[in-house]
């Protein structure tokens, strides 16, 4: 097991394995996303309260979920890098940051677009939107530190450290924002916490969430593979591959 883990951690093996798996994952992600979008746009019954705007949920909720879990994955990569100094983990962390930033941004924008017809305003200082905004700040911080330190040998470890500090703060920030929201705005209409969502509504949501996850992994792998070539360009296998 340990041996296998170490082998996968070597850039060369990872490059080979990910290269053979990537096409299947890409096709699967494409199928899931297309099926999910068609289902969500065309076949989900309109909500009795929100009407057709409920269809925005099928991009908003998956992107919000992915925004959070991509930060978690970054943190996991950070721990692996700080503890075992596996270079691949550093590459993975570096490559996850821009994708996560994009998805957090998407979650915020779609939240605002959804808020306009349901709440009547583009932005509400709702607990969920606010903590997503803070998450965006954390992502931006990681990217800013990374770019400010580019070229330094310690860049990877410093970024990993920052991500760890962020991930420890994330629950505290989340709870404090939740608490702050309930304090200032007692009972209000919540977007996603329906008492119970009927299956014809949550099934396509599940498909979309899976599609988003697969998509994330695909573009993550794409970036990781490029960065491996960049860092390992002196090794023989890259030279043979490139020329």
């Amino acid at each position: 097991m340990w041996n296998w883990f170490h082998k996968l951690g070597s850039p060369k093996t990872f490059y080979a394995i990910s290269g053979s798996l990537l096409p299947y994952f890409c096709v699967l992600a494409g199928i899931m996303l297309v099926a999910g979008v068609v289902w969500a746009l065309g076949f989900v019954p309109p909500d009795y309260q929100q009407g057709h705007t409920v269809r925005i949920m099928y991009v908003h909720v998956p992107s919000a979920i992915l925004a959070q879990s991509s930060y978690m994955m970054m943190a996991a990569a950070g721990v692996v890098y700080l503890v075992w100094r596996i270079k691949l983990a550093d590459i993975a962390l570096q490559c996850a940051a821009p994708i996560g930033t994009g998805l957090t941004f998407l979650a915020l924008i779609t939240g605002a677009i959804w808020g306009k017809p349901t709440w009547g305003t583009w932005w509400v200082w709702d607990a969920r939107l606010t903590s997503t905004l803070v998450l965006l700040f954390l992502f931006v911080g990681v990217m800013a530190l990374r770019s400010a330190m580019s070229g330094k040998a310690s860049a990877g470890r410093a970024t990993a450290m920052l991500v760890l500090v962020g991930v420890m703060n994330l629950p505290i920030i989340k709870y404090s924002v939740d608490w702050w929201f309930t304090l200032h705005q007692p009972s209000s209409f919540s977007l996603t916490e329906k008492p119970s969502m009927p299956p014809e509504m949550w099934m396509p949501l599940l498909v979309m969430v899976l599609g988003f996850y697969l998509f994330f992994f695909c573009v993550w792998m794409l970036r990781i593979r490029t960065e491996i070539l960049n860092r390992e360009y002196r090794s023989r296998w890259v030279r043979e591959l490139v020329q």
């Binding site: 803070v134 700040f137 931006v140 911080g141 800013a144 920052l162 505290i172 920030i173 404090s176």
Partner: peptide, 10 residues
């Protein structure tokens, strides 16, 4: 400021 301000929110 960018790194630390979000952590000050709580």
């Amino acid at each position: 400021a960018i790194l630390v301000l979000p952590l000050y929110i709580p």
